[in-house]
């Protein structure tokens, strides 16, 4: 069964023992049998998003089975809109990413709405880190306003995952990404029962977390194998329009013989 990781990082947080390089991502995710990954810039999440996006693009350019997320910062709406325009013209960038650290007091800010208005035309998924119930409600409000876009709640609201499940159930352009420190049993099965098998995706948040920690949730969840299949790769492939290449994650095109 393939696995697509919809959220890992280039760049490690300050407390991490990891380096956060593409090579490390390749080694660690590869060891966990993850076939493809959608990557965000760790630097962009907490600092200069333009430099972070540039570094990410340089890292993944010309490599197979790795894709990028354009980091945006609602405090810089015009600059973020320009980043979206610029990066989404690159074939490997497949979505937008809003980090909690730079989102401001409210997820559904006017700055973010400006960026989303400029991004509608691209039709790419919007991934938002959700750490609590307020974040969840903010994303759901945005999803209801920008109903042609698909929103992915990274971390599924953290400890407030029950709120995330209930809030997202009727809002069909939302997806739940299961990766967080909250390994509550059985949040995966509960989410599946509420939002259905097509609106769940797997993200490792490596190196902030580790793929094995999140894969452990999928392993133990009381769900059918066909739903596990959807969660681990099929939904992500459809959401981001990915085609897996039969080659190691982040191999160069030459190595992949593509």
């Amino acid at each position: 069964m393939p696995i697509i990781d919809v959220h890992a990082y280039i760049g490690a947080p300050p407390e991490s023992l990891r380096q956060g390089t593409l090579r490390e991502v390749q080694q660690v995710l590869g060891a966990c049998r993850i076939n493809a990954a959608v990557l965000a810039s760790g630097r962009a999440g907490t600092g200069d998003f333009r430099r972070g996006n540039e570094q990410l693009q340089s890292a993944i350019d010309g490599r197979v089975n790795v894709y990028g997320l354009v980091a945006i910062n609602p405090s810089y709406p015009e600059e973020s809109s320009e980043e979206v325009r610029r990066r989404l013209s690159h074939p490997q960038f497949r979505g937008l990413k809003l980090a909690r650290e730079t989102a401001g007091p409210r997820i559904d800010s006017e700055g973010l709405k400006t960026v989303l208005n400029a991004s509608r035309r691209y039709g790419r998924p919007v991934l938002v880190e959700t750490a609590d119930a307020d974040d969840v409600r903010g994303v759901v409000a945005l999803a209801q306003e920008f109903h042609t876009l698909r929103f992915v709640l990274l971390g599924m609201g953290g400890p407030h995952w029950e709120t995330a499940i209930r809030a997202c159930e009727p809002v069909l352009n939302t997806c739940l990404e299961i990766g967080s420190l909250e390994a509550d049993c059985d949040k995966v099965a509960d989410a599946l029962a509420a939002v259905g098998a097509r609106r769940l995706v797997f993200g490792s948040h490596f190196p902030r977390l580790h793929p094995l920690y999140v894969l452990g949730m999928v392993k133990d969840a009381a769900i059918e194998d066909r739903d596990r299949d959807r969660l681990l790769w099929r939904n992500a492939a459809e959401l981001f329009e990915l085609e897996l290449v039969n080659a190691p994650l982040a191999a160069t095109r030459e190595e992949a013989g593509a």
Binding site: D186, G216, M217, D220
Partner: peptide
């Protein structure tokens, strides 16, 4: 923290 939390999330990192 079983059965409140998934056992494999705690166990897989140790096993590998």
């Amino acid at each position: 923290a079983s059965p409140l939390q998934y056992v494999s999330s705690a166990r897989l990192p140790l096993e590998t």
